[in-house]
């Protein structure tokens, strides 16, 4: 058996961490797009659509991400294709992220004063115009800190894809542990790498939040 040095372990983990980053980015961007669509249906669509998007959000927020991953993995398999783990991982994480982002953003849109809707309506704007030119520009500002904050949950959420066999940081941790029999060091390092990815996001979310609050108080 080959000997693993500390640096070998770290190098292997860092290489795998690339996939954690890629998966996080894909989930976050994809989830953002789906989430925006959900948001529009949730607050402005027809009754039936509102009901559906609300149900979607509650379903994805009310069940374990792990189950969603399993369902994506085996559900896509029902179509007769051999599903690669990365595909199931992307699908499940995008759908999961979308539910949370839609809900976060709904809060931001609802924090915009009712008068803004009324004033823009009284000027003859339709729903999409109101959203596009009046509500979203304001809501976006409020939405940045919690959105950045949620990106931390996405990065951490990618760890679960190791369970359906996607090789990212967590999976690499298990593989390296099995090869080295040094679980303490390996999982400690894995945790630190996640921390290095997540902490800057958490901190910037906090700082942005504080900046926004100060800006609001000055009015």
């Amino acid at each position: 058996m080959t000997e693993f040095s500390f640096w070998d372990i770290l190098r292997n983990l860092l290489l795998a961490a690339r996939w954690t980053v890629v998966l996080s980015l894909v989930s976050f961007i994809g989830g953002g797009i789906v989430g925006a669509a959900l948001l529009f249906l949730r607050i402005g669509g027809r009754r039936g659509m509102q009901f559906l998007s609300r149900g979607y959000i509650q379903l994805f927020q009310g069940t374990p991400l792990l189950m969603q991953l399993f369902l994506a993995f085996f559900g896509l398999g029902l179509f007769g294709i051999d599903v690669p783990a990365w595909l199931a991982a992307c699908v499940a994480l995008i759908l999961w992220t979308a539910a949370f982002l839609a809900e976060i953003w709904r809060g931001c849109v609802e924090s915009i004063a009712k008068g803004q809707w009324e004033a823009s309506a009284s000027l003859g704007m339709g729903y999409l115009q109101q959203m596009r030119y009046v509500i979203l520009p304001q809501a976006l500002k409020v939405a940045v800190p919690p959105t950045v904050g949620f990106s931390v949950q996405v990065v951490k959420g990618t760890a679960l894809t190791s369970i359906i066999g996607f090789v990212e940081l967590s999976k690499a941790g298990s593989i390296v542990t099995n090869a080295t029999f040094q679980p303490f060091t390996v999982y400690g390092l894995v945790a630190l790498i996640y921390f290095a990815l997540c902490w800057p996001l958490s901190k910037s979310s906090q700082l942005l939040e504080r900046k926004l609050n100060v800006a609001h108080r000055n009015h």
């Binding site: 004063a113 009324e118 004033a119 704007m125 009046v134 520009p137 304001q138």
Partner: peptide, 30 residues
């Protein structure tokens, strides 16, 4: 709404636009 305009107690100006922008927006999009 193109026939009747409304002015509100709380002004309801769009805070992200300048005074000029406020007056221009609906002309341009509506």
């Amino acid at each position: 709404r193109l026939k009747v305009g409304m002015i509100f107690q709380q002004f309801n100006l769009f805070p992200h636009l300048t005074a000029g922008g406020n007056v221009m927006l609906s002309q341009m999009v509506v």
